[in-house]
Amino acid sequence: MTPPVLEVKDLRVHFLLDEGVVRAVDGVSFAVHPGQVVGIVGESGCGKTVTMKAILQIVEPPGRVVGGQILFRKDSAPPVDLTRLSPKGAAMRAIRGAEIALIPQEPMAAFSPVHTVGDQIIEALRLHERQWRPTGPRLSRHEAREMTVDLFRSVGISMPDQRVDAYSWQLSGGLRQRAMIAMALSCKPRLLIADEPTTAIDVTTQAQILNLLRDLQRRHGTAIVFITHDLGVIAQMARYVVVMYLGRVMEQGSVADIFHAPKHPYTRALLKSIPSLHVIPRTLLPTIAGSIPHPLGRPHGCPFHPRCPDAIPGVCTERVPALRPVGPQQLASCFLYHRDEAAER
């Protein structure tokens, strides 16, 4: 197997507030292989967005990466630990946008309202030119514009040569997200991070955007980290799924394993509790008891134990389970599958 393009190892991001320490990401590990779509799924406060920010090194204070490694690999070169780079340094800036690109949830906020979307993409193309095209003459503005029009065409924007000169607020939500995808792809990134890219748009437009992303991924073979709270979207998009809860990975595995043979009680309960088009109307859904704890009131032991139907008293309440294999490609952090670990004191 080819070495992973991104490897997150035991990542810890803490927020030091006056009221206490919020362990937003607390020991998260996963790997993204070239051409793979890895879905990170979880509810609010699970740390999926903070993980994304840590990868891009854009965690705002009082948040801080306090431990772990984020290894980013370019071709055959030895991997770079992104946590060791200065967030504002030249090395990180060269990676951000060019090697690792972001598709944000709200493209309205990502585009500047005073420049046309085309200009912003042209700017990015020229700025990162040496990363995506190490040799050749300097890119002229005219060439960059031609490339932007082509990019717009490839992401399915109609009348691309006119839309290039539009401002972001003149575009509809769907078009804006397409333009954002064009911008993210402009520098031929090795890794694309999509942070809830379809949460702010309607379901019929969402279907279009998901199709587009799937299509582009197939064509370019870009690795994608797809972050969402929507289990339906993750099932349709990801090949490998990481399920997070309160800053920890509960379970990870291939999409088929996660959806058809979930091991962790949280994953199982979550899948059962979502209303889907295939259930009988007006029947009670199985639920997960309680609510997500306040980030400052994090439970002792396994973070899920107060809501877990299978919690082992004296074990899950006391100790934090490690992420261990439960299948050929599947890992879960749960004492139910590691009786030996649960037994040892």
């Binding site: 509809s172 309607d202 019929t204 279907a207 349709q236």
Partner: peptide
């Protein structure tokens, strides 16, 4: 079309393949 566009929480049930074109 609205029903087809809802992504099914099941990787074996592909959905949204024939997405509605255009915008509201």
């Amino acid at each position: 079309a609205l029903m087809r566009a809802v992504p099914a929480p099941d990787p074996h049930t592909p959905s949204g393949d024939a997405a509605l074109a255009g915008e509201v």
